[in-house]
């Protein structure tokens, strides 16, 4: 009930707190490994190009930074076409 009322009276925008959390998540992950949105794009392009030279890619490949605690990792997901 409360949630319902909150939804009616809110303007549909996410709260500034959740925006702050989303922005921090991205910026801290980049800060910790010295990367940037630009670098991630370059990495994605180069990794896909490399794989595509040897295998056939199927679907949308994804290259992103993930973090657990204060540790970060590069998460590469490249769907491949079967024969």
């Amino acid at each position: 009930m409360f949630e319902f009322l909150k939804r009616i009276f809110s303007d549909g925008k996410p709260s500034s707190r959740s925006r702050a959390n989303d922005r921090l998540r991205v910026v801290l992950t980049h800060d910790r490994v010295g990367s940037s949105a630009q670098l991630m794009e370059t990495l994605q392009e180069e990794i896909i190009a490399l794989i595509a030279r040897h295998m056939e890619i199927d679907g949308t490949p994804e290259v992103r930074l993930i973090s657990e605690g204060r540790h970060s990792a590069l998460d590469i997901s490249i769907p491949l076409k079967g024969r």
Binding site: S15, R17, S18, N21, L24, L28
Partner: peptide
């Protein structure tokens, strides 16, 4: 402000800073 969703909470800060 935290309750109104206008400030980071303690839980948020611990999640970010670990």
């Amino acid at each position: 402000m935290v309750r109104r969703g206008d400030m980071l909470s303690i839980e948020d800060l611990i999640e970010h800073l670990c």
